[in-house]
Design a protein around this nucleic acid. Structure first.
Lengths: 199, 199
DNA sequence: TGTACATCAGTGAACGCGCGTTCACTGATGTAC
DNA sequence: TGTACATCAGTGAACGCGCGTTCACTGATGTAC
């Protein structure tokens, strides 16, 4: 693996770059994507706005980095949860997704909420979305190997169903629609995961 | 019913007010809530920005009007679809919700997508959300009167489940997550509605 | 070890844009006598 | 029927704010001889 130049300057550069990403995330997490502001980040770093262009190509590029890193993080979370007995594995992955979403609602909404108008995610996002989908799909396939649900189309449909049910609960929960409704999201979520296992 | 003053001035006033609402909607529909701009509306009407304050209290008030009218419209749509045989009625309502969402994705997302940061919907929104929920709930109760699913808590949970499954499909569909995934949203949606009927 | 040079982080001024909102006002329109 | 008055839609200037982005530049830091 090629190690990039690691002099003191490169070191400093990486550190500031990390701070930029960190501040960008805290903007998104506290007030959504629309709050992402290069000028605000610069001032929080104690520098003037143009200096930020040493670390960021443009606002759109920064946004793309956030989106991709969120996808990557979720993919890793899902992959890390993919272990154990088949049924428990599906449940484990689903619970990991919910925990990931609740840990940072705006990060989840950045990926699966209302699309940012005029912004088109890069092709890599699609690949990462598949990396998130795959462990769920595999877990469900293992669960029913040689039993009721046939493979192929029907198996794919089942994974999609799991995904939409998971999002159905999370999307409404994160948007606050259960607070006025006497719903226990946790139980509802668990039941929805079970419903797909029982399919 | 008290008829409001209907002289030529009131007439004109109502007409312009309607145009303001119409332009506001076309902004939201074409680029989401964040595109809602009083100045832009004024200029599209051929007037200067301050003149708009004859018709609108503030941007927030206009937004509230949009949100409430979207809720009202959906509630009416759902109520209008609540007829026919029990199973067909549930399906009819669900299909009406999907048609309503597809007719104007941003209007659906205004209600159920990522919340507008810093904006709090008025209490009336909660009442209207219940008006949307109620016909679904009634239809499901009629469907299983005296059969498997007991009333009360379990019946409520089932309606919630229907709602989250509907939203799971619609939310991801409207955000464009199926376009790279070889999913037929219409079939998926129909299957999800069926899954609750079979519960 | 010391000096000359290249690198590059950060500045300051500026551009052009958009936003919501206020204020004192003009002038046309409708209304009351 | 005509005139005086009140109503009110819309203007123009302005405030203060925020945004992304460019440009020529200063000055500190690291590097090569």
């Amino acid at each position: 693996m090629a190690v990039p130049p690691a002099g003191p300057r490169a070191r400093y550069r990486e550190q500031v770059t990390a701070e930029v990403r960190g501040l960008a995330w805290s903007q998104v997490e506290s007030a959504g994507v629309s709050a992402l502001s290069l000028k605000a980040i610069a001032h929080q770093l104690g520098m003037t706005a143009p200096a930020l262009y040493r670390y960021v190509g443009s606002r759109d590029e920064l946004l793309t980095e956030l989106v991709l890193s969120a996808y990557r993080d979720l993919a890793e979370t899902v992959e890390a949860a993919a272990s154990g007995e088949p049924a428990a594995r599906v449940r484990g992955i689903a619970d990991a997704i919910r925990a990931w979403a609740l840990a940072s609602p705006q990060r989840y909404l950045l990926l699966y909420g209302t699309p940012v108008p005029g912004y088109q995610a890069p092709a890599e996002a699609t690949e990462l979305a598949q990396r998130i989908f795959a462990p769920l799909h595999t877990a469900l396939e293992v669960l029913t190997a040689g039993s009721r649900t046939p493979a192929g189309r029907a198996g794919f449909d089942r994974t999609v169903r799991l995904w939409t049910r998971v999002h159905g609960v999370l999307g409404l929960e994160l948007a606050g629609h259960f607070t006025t409704m006497d719903v226990e999201p946790e139980r509802l979520f668990a039941d929805e995961v079970t419903s797909v296992l029982d399919d």
